[in-house]
Amino acid sequence: MHLVYPAVLSALLFCTGLYGVLARRNAILILMSVELMLNAVNLNLVAFDVWLSKTAEETLHSGQALTLFTIAIAAAEIGIGLAIVLAVHRDRGTADIDRLRDTAEGHESHEGSAADGTDTDAPVTGAAAEKAEATA
């Protein structure tokens, strides 16, 4: 088999995942797109490992070992990512990452109306809470 077929398929899958990461709004859909990108990398690793183990007689099988490690790390990543998304959803009531703008600078002017004003008045209320804490 030509090496071009798995390489091109992996490039296409990676760019599909890239589009998903950039264009999606729900955090779980973004995690799915990240999974697609990781799988594209896995396909590349396996294809190149099979090619090298036959032509260069490489017996270390580093590509397949790295694929197994990538799969395990992706499973860990999806667990941690879902825990974070669930914590954010429990706190904010949304999994929409376009509305998590607490650390953004200079976006309040044209995004304040879309974000229910929850993040625009967050610094003010935070200061008020600190004041109440200090005076108590």
Binding site: M1, H2, V4, A7, A11, C15, L18, Y19, W51
Partner: peptide, 26 residues
């Protein structure tokens, strides 16, 4: 996002095909 993804796909496929078009997996 579509622009970025299509540009990345074009560049990646161009490079990959140019580099490995004669490579054969046995």
């Amino acid at each position: 996002a579509l622009t970025v993804a299509v540009a990345a796909a074009t560049a990646l496929i161009w490079v990959v095909v140019d580099a490995f078009r004669a490579t054969w997996i046995d």
